[in-house]
Amino acid sequence: MYVKQISVFIENTPGRLAHFTKLLGDNNIDLVSLSVADTTHFGILRGIVADYEKAVKLISENGYTVKLTDVLAVSVPDHPGGLAEVLETLSGHDIVVEYLYSFVRNAGDHALIIFRVDKLDEAEKVLTEAGVRLLSQDEVRGL
């Protein structure tokens, strides 16, 4: 059960990020989750949107380089050590977490966290077996 993440190349020039988020806002595309990391030269914006097909079309038509990636949307118990349990499950199976970031919103007593891992299928299997809940694309749409 994967969700689609968009990755967008953002030049590290003043206003470029603002321009991008305004583009989404003006077209009623809501970023339900977002991570912007940058080096001094360029940034990659990663995020989850409700309607990724529409978002990709809009973004590429506006001249941005954009890519879709499968990631896991993990519902992590919102208590101390909740995240550690998930990470331990993954590392116990030699699954490397490439990056993770949290949702802007959370669901009650659970925090929603996006995981990008090297072995996607295996990660899904071991987390499900460990009783961790993964969100589907439809559930993300509903957020």
């Binding site: 990755s7 990391a37 080096t39 360029f42 990659i44 380089t65 890519k67």
Partner: peptide, 15 residues
């Protein structure tokens, strides 16, 4: 101009 979107997977690729 960066045109290959698959490079967006990792910073290290862009670098």
């Amino acid at each position: 101009e960066l045109v290959d979107a698959s490079l967006l997977e990792k910073y290290s690729e862009l670098e």
